Amino acid sequence: MRIAEGRDRPMKSYDVAIVGAGILGLAHAYAAARRGQRVVVLERDAQANGASIRNFGFVTVTGQEAGDCWEMARRARRVWGELCAQARIPILQEGLVVAARLEESLPVLDAFLAGPMGEGCRRIGHAEAAAMIPALRPEAVRAALFSPHEVRVESREAIPRLAAFLAERLGVDFKWRTAVQAVETGRLWTSAGEIAAARIVVCPGDDFSSLFADRLQAYNLTRCKLHMLRLEPQRPVRFQTALMSDQGLGRYLGYADLPEATPLKARLDREFAALRANGVHLIVTQSADGSLVVGDSHHYAPTPDPFAPEAVDRLILDEFEAVLDLEGWSVRERWVGTYASAKDSWRLTDRPMDGVRIVIVTAGCGASTAFGIGEETIAALLD
């Protein structure tokens, strides 16, 4: 498909063009630039504004689905460690505590620790967990899982810093506020004119209609909307690690797919039906200013509505209060995010034509896996 507008403008040429400046697009740009490629990133907005900045900034390895999702997360975690140092992105927290207050959660912890994905993790009690998260309620911790693998960054700051690093240190060319109208082998037609690129990677996030809509329709994609909150504690509190609760054991597939999780999920369905119906599971991370990022929920629709019912936030906060004992707090911010979702796959890579790939993470784990996926895609295109 050719677009007449812009044909009279000079055509720039690159080795690799990336469509989309979210974390997945930036990961592909980084993988290509490290291999000496001349790279351009095209983004229709003035800055990344979607799922990549509307999340916890929590790079999660432990609990990811067994198989290549977990493997990609392990590789991405190593790259994050390298990049945070080079791009001066502060790591605000390291590690994860999963607090288990239900009896049925304990066999899940033990089974996970006994498997290969439990490497480096260990079971701890309330005293050790509270040394890392002093606000933990004693009754909320029959036992806990500690993982050393996770890191947490501030997404709204980390993504711009990563883009700046790619531009300044690796020579990646960014074209902001540039809409890509059509793609074919070796060419992109954009609102800023025609661009030549030997290889093209399209990372559209949850936009399934702007490019290759016919190809994407076959994947039965939908969107997931989630609620997030930022809480301001009345008194200073320190979270050395990120925190999850039993709800995460029933949702994250690295735990929930274990046979030992069946009784736990049955109890969660019975006793926490509203949380399960709204896809609520607790994650708490802490920002540099001491505020707490808390979430989240999951609602699915082809076009999610933009509204954030207070009742859903209340479910999240009820779980927060069941696990943590703070003297007081207030809500400083609320927001919603959306991301691409698919029932039977956590990611997709489609080859619509020679030299072109469409890459989408469809399980809300883009920040945790993007750098592994980027390396895989670029290696396949170049090698």
Rank of each mutant, 00 (worst) to 15 (best):
I3R: 05
E5M: 10
G6Q: 04
R7K: 11
D8Q: 15
I18C: 00
V19I: 12
V19W: 01
G20M: 01
A21T: 04
L24F: 10
L26W: 08
R34G: 15
R38K: 15
D45C: 12
A46L: 09
N49E: 13
N55I: 12
T60H: 14
V61E: 02
V61W: 00
T62R: 00
M72K: 13
A76K: 02
R77Q: 15
W80Q: 06
L83H: 08
A85N: 15
I89N: 00
A100K: 00
R101A: 14
E103N: 14
S105T: 03
V108I: 06
G120P: 05
G120F: 09
C121T: 06
C121Y: 01
I124V: 11
H126E: 11
H126F: 14
I159T: 02
L162A: 02
A163K: 02
L170M: 13
F174Q: 03
V180H: 00
G193C: 01
A196N: 08
F208Q: 04
F208R: 05
L221H: 01
L226P: 06
V237I: 12
A242G: 05
A242C: 08
M244N: 15
D257W: 10
L258K: 04
L268K: 03
D269F: 10
R270K: 14
A274M: 11
R276P: 11
A277L: 12
G279E: 03
S291F: 11
G295L: 10
F307Q: 11
F307V: 13
A322N: 15
L326F: 09
K343I: 11
D344I: 05
I358A: 02
A363V: 10
G372F: 06
L381P: 00
